[in-house]
Design a binder for these strands. Sequence first.
DNA 1: CGTCTAGTTGACAGTCCTCAATGCGGGTGG
DNA 2: CCACCCGCATTGAGGACTGTCAACTAGACG
Lengths: 246, 246
Amino acid sequence: MNDVGCHSPLVRKFQALGPWTDSELLALGSFGSRRRRLGAHQAIFHERDASDEAYLVQSGWTCVYKLLPDGGRQVISFPLPGDIVGISGLFLDGAQFSFESLTPVELSPISTATLLNGAMASSNVARAVRWSVARDSAILVEHLVNVGRRSALMRTAHFILELAHRLRLIGAERAGEFACPVNQYWMADALGLTAIHLNRVLRELREAHLVTLRAGHVSIHDYEGLKDLAVFDGDYLSPPKRVGWP
Amino acid sequence: MNDVGCHSPLVRKFQALGPWTDSELLALGSFGSRRRRLGAHQAIFHERDASDEAYLVQSGWTCVYKLLPDGGRQVISFPLPGDIVGISGLFLDGAQFSFESLTPVELSPISTATLLNGAMASSNVARAVRWSVARDSAILVEHLVNVGRRSALMRTAHFILELAHRLRLIGAERAGEFACPVNQYWMADALGLTAIHLNRVLRELREAHLVTLRAGHVSIHDYEGLKDLAVFDGDYLSPPKRVGWP
DNA sequence: CGTCTAGTTGACAGTCCTCAATGCGGGTGG
DNA sequence: CCACCCGCATTGAGGACTGTCAACTAGACG
């Protein structure tokens, strides 16, 4: 009857947190009731914009970043389908970062009221939202460790593995292969490198038969080797296994 | 009558979010009902520890960090009195980082139940907690930008200014002077630098008559100059000014 | 066919790291 | 009281990693 979630990346992401009742699926569905389509490289909001809405990514790749006065850019994250962007901005004076599409995307604006009502209506929904926020924070922490304390090579390997894991959870990765429309400029700005140096690092990874990134497509040739290089552990990305979690 | 908050850094931090009713102050006070004293450099929890409790710092300086297998260390944050550590760990499988005291500290463990009950009992408390979490996220984002895209000099300047602002909000900074018991090893690990290089950077800042850090005490000599150097804007640290915020 | 974006490569410079040594102050024990 | 130790700060010399500048290729597109 209720197939609200069949095509919803949010429901897919929260699947393991279930079981979900029909009414809860409906509540989750309400997060995606409104839709907006945008082309590639369109601004969604800018740093300092007062924001009354967060955005659920329904399809496509997006990018969260901050610009510096000297022209520098730091990419904070690449939100994927099922990810919600800008929740923290709801509770501050404005967004702390800019948000834009990298590919054509489909977005669902979520008002503060919708978010809070959904969480109040169902404790399962509230849990899922709390987990999502906590996971985003864990990703951010790992990103900081990556940029602060890993070499360019390890950093890049770690980044690719994190992408692979996140994409696997939404069914967009298979056997170490996935589409990745992020160009080397954006990727370099995520990793705190220059595009030129990233290019050399990617060559090194390719020549070591670990991973190839070409024409918007990533092929991981040696998952274990890459994992060893990056000292990657993807536990922080998966839904919690604990029973009776809050 | 009700002086629950008079000596509570949490209430002080949340002051501007008021007005607070007595019963709400009581609810906030419940976050600090239990107390634990610890000496300097004591572990509070470790990465991967299953955690049922977050910690409110009541007094003293603390440190959140991650260790890498090669011996490296990335400091994520220096939680100060009024800050709550480990909320995200409650909603994941375990803590993503280690937490320890830098000085003798006083901590209040907050159970998941206490936190959620407090938030359910009062929408003002819920707001305050949401703001606190959102602010921590904003600080983390700024930290990532700092490490990823700013030179060692700007990075250090920015870090010192952020500390100054945070300390000012809890009344621990006056006229550009504050105590800072963080040694150069810890600070370097926060900034993604080596202690040796940080030392040279600090000398440079001192010789430029911008700021001096000596014997656990920071003196900002030229606030504007430092701010210009770091391109610092501390808005993300202050309570939101919006009316009717959620 | 020209233009544009993205990717690639080379040469060189510079920031930051590594290794090594020294100074300095505060404890602790003889 | 003094010697010793230890954590922390400081400095020097050299090297490695990463950035800068510049040029060139390849493919997409009109």
